[in-house]
Design a protein around this nucleic acid. Structure first.
Lengths: 229, 229
DNA sequence: TAAGGTGGGATTGCATGCAAACGGACCGAC
DNA sequence: GTCGGTCCGTTTGCATGCAATCCCACCTTA
């Protein structure tokens, strides 16, 4: 990204924005952030520029940076992009085939999640952490198997959205997570069978459904929250 | 992006990279760029960081920035992404419908290109410029009609690739450009008819074909350059 | 001769100072 | 009372200085 300290500040600032510690439209002052982080204005300025490039801040010349507001339409748009691009990754992975190592990691991720979800009770913190980790392994492995250098960075930018990002992610309803793990199995089977088109559309559907679930859990009135798309 | 001077430097640096004025892997030194641009190191540093975020430079702590090499596989990957995302834009535009203004601009773009291509002779500079402009209007209008804030920035990053970017674009073969304009007509008709799926796949096909043509024109041996995908 | 260590030049990383631009408050005029 | 203008505090934008790191060549030693 940039340089050692600036890089760390950029990540810290990003996490604060994603965690919702600033309100939308808020003006971020360099000196204020600098003393908050115990650094000088120079690395802070780089961190601001980096987060602006990531779409989290808006810049005006001579006026500085404000945090960009996000609305439900943006969340829907982000999941549209995610579905499309992860679908591409699944298709490419199927066309190219998975390495033994990739296949092993995917199998392990699916199996571990299945074990964690064997109960119907609410998940404790450890179980939630395990789910997050292995869910991420599944997706990341497919993305890395897709042989397209543009996929990973693009996905990162559309996934880093305030109010919908991994640490805040899901309601952790075991029924939902089991459904997702079934999706994962289906996608894995299609990739192994080298059925690229099926893998693409199953992945697209998987991401779309997950997005609708998340948006439903965010809406105050959860009746048909996702169906309006 | 960043601040006034730094912003200008960032664009100048980007254009130099895209124009191929540095070789892949070349180390860009801050002081050298600073005196080349007649500025100090501070805005140069910001310009370097911005271009790194755009994927044109690679950064290593305490070692600075090197220009990232691109190979034919990267070009193919970029067109894969472009086809997918512009397809999404076409589908969304069809689903939402075009404004009268957007429809007018698209019609004008298609008609103007048709007039420019009425001859079979090689295009002069003015004709090439006209084609570039109106081709861009067609694509941009659809992208702006898609109502997804992530589409435009993502497309920009996958289109800004050394050796394949608008000013260097096409061989300007009138037969090819007429083919593209026919594609545009078909896409326009689908969008107007609110046939989102057809619009999506026609756009995807259009971009894919254009990418194969470009890659064929770059390859030394142009036999089946695009068919290997 | 080859391997390892060491010193110096060059380059990046960060802090700070100064100039320019912005924004808001106060004041005056109509 | 409202509109327009001017002044001043605040903030950003850029230049520069200094410390830390790195790279490379040279030297030492086995």
């Amino acid at each position: 990204m940039t340089q050692p300290i600036a890089q760390a500040l950029s990540a810290r600032l990003r996490d604060m924005i994603l965690a919702g510690e600033f309100r939308g439209g808020q003006h971020l002052r360099e000196v204020q952030l600098a003393q908050m982080f115990g650094a000088s204005r120079t690395p802070v300025r780089l961190a601001l520029a980096a987060n602006e490039k990531d779409g989290l801040l808006a810049y005006s010349p001579n006026r500085g940076y404000v945090v960009r507001p996000f609305d439900p339409g943006d969340i829907a748009g982000a999941f549209e992009m995610r579905a499309l691009i992860e679908g591409l990754a699944a298709r490419k992975a199927a066309e190219r085939g998975l390495s033994d190592e990739a296949l092993r990691r995917i199998a392990e991720a699916i199996d571990t999640v299945a074990r964690v979800l064997a109960t119907d009770e609410a998940l404790d913190d450890g179980a939630r952490e395990a789910w997050r980790t292995h869910n991420a392994v599944f997706h990341r492995t497919i993305i890395e198997s897709a042989d397209n250098r543009f996929i990973a960075p693009t996905l990162q930018t559309v996934q880093r959205i305030p109010s919908v990002y991994p640490p805040v992610l899901a309601s952790y309803d075991p029924a939902l997570l089991r459904k997702y793990n079934d999706h994962h199995r289906g996608i894995r089977d299609c990739i192994v069978a080298r059925q690229g088109v099926r893998a693409e559309f199953l992945m697209r559907e998987h991401v779309t459904v997950a997005g609708e679930d998340i948006r439903a859990s965010l809406h105050p009135a959860p009746e048909l929250a996702g169906a309006a798309e």
